[in-house]
Nucleic acid binder design. Structure first.
Lengths: 192, 192
DNA sequence: AGGCACTGGCTAAGTACGTTAGCTTGGGGC
DNA sequence: GCCCCAAGCTAACGTACTTAGCCAGTGCCT
């Protein structure tokens, strides 16, 4: 009986792909094992359990999202960069809803947790966008959280079909980007 | 053996309370039954199953959130109303993380689904805020989605401890509200 | 008051999933 | 060629969701 030749990365990658196909909620150890042509307990040679698998998928998703955003903003600045980052992020979430869903509700265990590292990578990509706006250093964190919240909220709501009514969703997203663009340009003055 | 006197509303309410206490992921039919002093299968006399329970909790959460926001903005307008709505929403999510988590990833089955109705109620509350801004009718939907996305994103990220680094989270939230306020004031001109 | 029907509880049992224990064997290094 | 470890396997257990079917409390009607 030949071996499958799996390792942790392969199991996590397959789990992410399967989650994208059937939804994160439907991802089980049994289904993943079947997909990999292996019996369920064999997966435990590569991941510590379902929790560990989920965390691996979450870290992978954040890393890939950071990479997509980082690539998209190359050579751009201002509203151009903001729009590119926004679309890259949303496209990623819509193309990979399962693996991005794995990132929701996951808490990093510490600063060295791969999830924390990958999350910081994504923030760094957004941070590069802000550098082309005149946002003071004291406000960078606030602006970063604001942009991240807006993108995360929009993408997850759309991914869950939270937008039911009439208007075109793509148009709404452009509107959101415009609002952020205006808000970042006029960001000035102390908060406290 | 005396009867517990349960009904659907009581089961859903207890489920929501339990989810707030132990986290939505930890909510099981068994634990909920134990909390209610009843055996697990008895719950099925009131809810069709766990999926149905989750949907009930989600609808309850959206209804309560809408009520909280609606009450908070009474007699306010402009930035005052926006800030009141934002804080009412975020306070609700942070005070009831379990039941709000039930709303994530739930798709309404149709326009008559209680979840869809409750979701529209929450949007109506936010819509009342926008009426005190000079947002054109053609842009109301976009502005609504933008505000909803920003609040939802911020509240869920904070609820999941997604903000790890230094700056004060409350200050960031004020910054987000200010950005939205500025963006809504200057909202003008066609999108397409 | 007595009886009837309905409702809401119960036990028992089946299915699915996660997980652990312990065995077996493929395949590379000496 | 032998040894050893990693990676597969089977067996088994615990927990959770769900269904089937039974029984008793409660309200209503006569």
């Amino acid at each position: 009986m030949p071996r499958a030749g799996l390792d942790q990365a392969a199991v996590v990658a397959a789990g992410a792909a399967l989650a994208d196909e059937i939804g994160f909620a439907g991802l089980t150890m049994g289904r993943l094992a079947e997909r990999l042509g292996v019996r369920t307990p064999s997966l435990y040679k590569h991941v510590a359990g379902q929790e560990d698998l989920n965390r691996g998928i979450a870290a992978l998703a954040l890393t890939e999202a950071a990479s997509a955003v980082g690539t998209a903003i190359q050579g751009r600045a201002g509203r151009d960069a903001l729009g590119a980052a926004a679309h890259a992020f949303r496209d990623f979430v819509l193309a990979h809803p399962g693996r991005y869903a794995a990132t929701i509700g996951v808490e990093p265990t510490g600063p060295d947790d791969p999830i924390a590292v990958a999350g910081l990578g994504l923030l760094e990509a957004f941070s590069a966008v802000l550098r082309s706006y005149a946002v003071g250093p004291a406000e960078t964190d606030h602006a970063l959280r604001t942009v991240r919240s807006a993108f995360h909220g929009f993408a997850t709501l759309q991914s869950a079909n939270g937008f039911q009514w009439s208007a075109d969703v793509g148009e709404s997203f452009e509107w959101l980007i415009d609002l952020l663009d205006r808000g970042l340009h006029t960001a000035a003055g102390p908060v406290s």
